[in-house]
Design a protein around this nucleic acid. Structure first.
Lengths: 343, 343
DNA sequence: CCATTTTGTGGGAGCGTTCCCATAAAATGG
DNA sequence: CCATTTTATGGGAACGCTCCCACAAAATGG
């Protein structure tokens, strides 16, 4: 019930030695006599001594903490990335400070400030869909605090990035639709502000071009990733005089919404319209029909990002180069684009 | 590119005043002349000054941080609880330190130590399914660090708890199955070590009793919540000489597994066997058939838990009482227990 | 056996704040 | 106009730790 926390000074006093010796024993410095060390360690254990990281960090001018700023927390994608990052961080004794921006620019700015105030040694960032201005992140650069972008990256700031090959993934997805005989393939794209939107759009277009298909503007829709709006656009596409016979959606939640609307209209999937998503969310294998999608190595993204960040932290500034790691995607074919053998 | 962080001393020197005055201006102390204050604030802004929380916290002996220990991160339940907690914490300027135990006791112990070392002002805990020993949590009590349990609670430690009415939820779920005419209702339960398992089991039994049904031991199976094992037990139930005509599962992931197996066997749902889950995960509305389940106010759990914790932090020890908040559940009926009008 | 190296320990500054106490200057009052 | 209060500021200790420097005692060597 004592509010007072046990400090090295308490241990020192009880053993009639100096705090310096206690500190050395506790940090494993070699020059402490064996029985002194033993006595200190025993007493520390007995008193439930826990080093005060606040003090250690202040003293060493580093927090042994890395910050993670993600846009949201609801789909399983980001939690799993965090899992991977945490795994790597924990291995080298780093703690992770997580904040989610709720897809709001203002919150992201506030979160960046919290990270700064807490003196994180580095920060992993994935942007909100709103973020257009990067001043709040440039501060990290100015203060020489290592930063790594992942997933929702920004090319205005020259730091390492971890992404998947969005272009190739979109290309594979579109080509797959072509292979199964689709002719009018629509694309529900993300906002052009996001790099991943642009890359996926490019992959889609290039696949069409490669196979000699025209690029039909009315079949390409960019939207802000708010699923409520997705519904409107899917309906718009279905109501076209000449509706598409396939839809490639920027991500799985969007594809899922499409699937629900298409099912409600009792159109046959994949015959009348096939659907492909991107990212292989947990749900995508469970729904009916199963959603064909591009799988990303989610946890690996977290691991690689954390590794890159730690390297940067442990390297003299200016020695490292802002590499961009591009991880591979995989096409997962399910019933939303081919008939299952069960039917 | 300067590694040196801006401190109040830097500001003081540039303006030829003392650090005390700068500190006062920055913290909004009244006795600072208006133009001095203005000059300080302007320069602070211009220099990108960020208060060093490490120093502030050390000085004030409180970290303005609350820790959250959750067993896992993969289902959407815990991320959403965290969302609620974060919302409340942020309102009063608290930061949140999150750690997940990967359903492993050892990791939970390690996480508790991290929280202690980082001098969190309080901690929100939900146990792993393995946790049987609570010494690592008793430390918080001994050090008078406020703690609140939620969801996976422990009654060996006398602190506030936030749970849902598991008993009533299970009762409603079971009674619903009885109402639709089911006679042999199985229950796939969790490990008896978890309070929620015991309560849900009780609710199940009492509903049966109320309606004069026998409690058939072979239809009640406790398992460790590892979904792989769930599959075995579901198959076992279906292979009984007299198989159940309904299944109430401890949680949605379990119910989902059951649904998949039942569908693979081409049994009709809900006619041959109805299924009910618990917690209304995001997927449960998307799969086919939709899963009947007991909804929990997930985000609210996080909010209430954080509120309780903050109250405790801001109260003289021994004034507060270890209340247990019991939130209400809601029965969500879907096609896994009744025919939808579409069929 | 005395000079030199090694070993173990203590003392103090510093990390960036806050907060109390002191003090000079300004304002107030009789 | 001088004593008293108020206002604005400075100085220093404290928070708990690390790390450098100093120094006594012990070990080593020629």
């Amino acid at each position: 019930m004592k509010r007072h926390q046990v400090t090295i000074f308490d241990i020192a006093r009880q053993l009639n030695i100096s705090k310096s010796t206690v500190s050395r024993a506790l940090t494993g410095h070699p020059s402490v006599k064996e029985n002194t060390r033993r006595a200190i360690l025993d007493l520390a254990q007995q008193l439930d001594y826990q080093p005060n990281m606040l003090a250690i960090n202040l003293s060493s001018s580093q927090s042994k903490t890395i910050g993670i700023i993600v846009p949201e927390f609801v789909t399983s994608f980001f939690p799993i990335v965090i899992l991977g990052a945490q795994e790597i961080a924990a291995q080298v004794g780093y703690t992770v400070l997580i904040s989610q921006s709720n897809e709001q620019y203002e919150t992201e700015v506030a979160n960046a400030r919290v990270m700064l105030a807490n003196r994180v040694d580095g920060v992993l960032v994935s942007l909100t869909r709103e973020t257009q201005n990067f001043d709040h992140l440039a501060v990290f650069q100015r203060k020489a605090i290592p930063m790594v972008f992942f997933n929702r990256v920004c090319y205005d700031i020259d730091v390492p990035k971890v992404i998947v090959d969005d272009y190739e993934g979109a290309f594979k997805a579109t080509e797959h639709l072509i292979h199964i005989g689709k002719k009018r393939i629509a694309h529900l794209a993300g906002p052009p502000s996001l790099y991943i939107s642009r890359k996926r759009l490019e992959g889609y277009k290039d696949a069409l071009r490669k196979h000699g298909f025209p690029i039909i503007d009315e079949l390409i829709i960019s939207y802000d990733l708010n699923v409520e709006r997705a519904k409107i656009y899917v309906k718009y596409l279905l109501d076209l005089p000449e509706p598409p016979d396939a839809l490639f959606a920027i991500n799985d939640p969007t594809a899922l919404e499409a699937l629900l609307i298409i099912k409600a209209r009792r159109l046959s999937i994949p015959d009348q319209i096939a659907v492909v998503g991107f990212s292989n969310d947990y749900v995508s294998s469970l729904i009916e029909p199963g959603l064909t999608t591009i799988a990303q190595p989610t946890r690996e993204i977290g691991r690689v990002a954390a590794q890159l960040l730690l390297e940067q932290i442990n390297t003299e500034a200016s020695t490292w180069k802002p590499v961009t790691k591009v991880l591979k995607t995989e096409l997962i074919i399910r019933e939303s684009s081919v008939r299952s053998c069960l039917d």
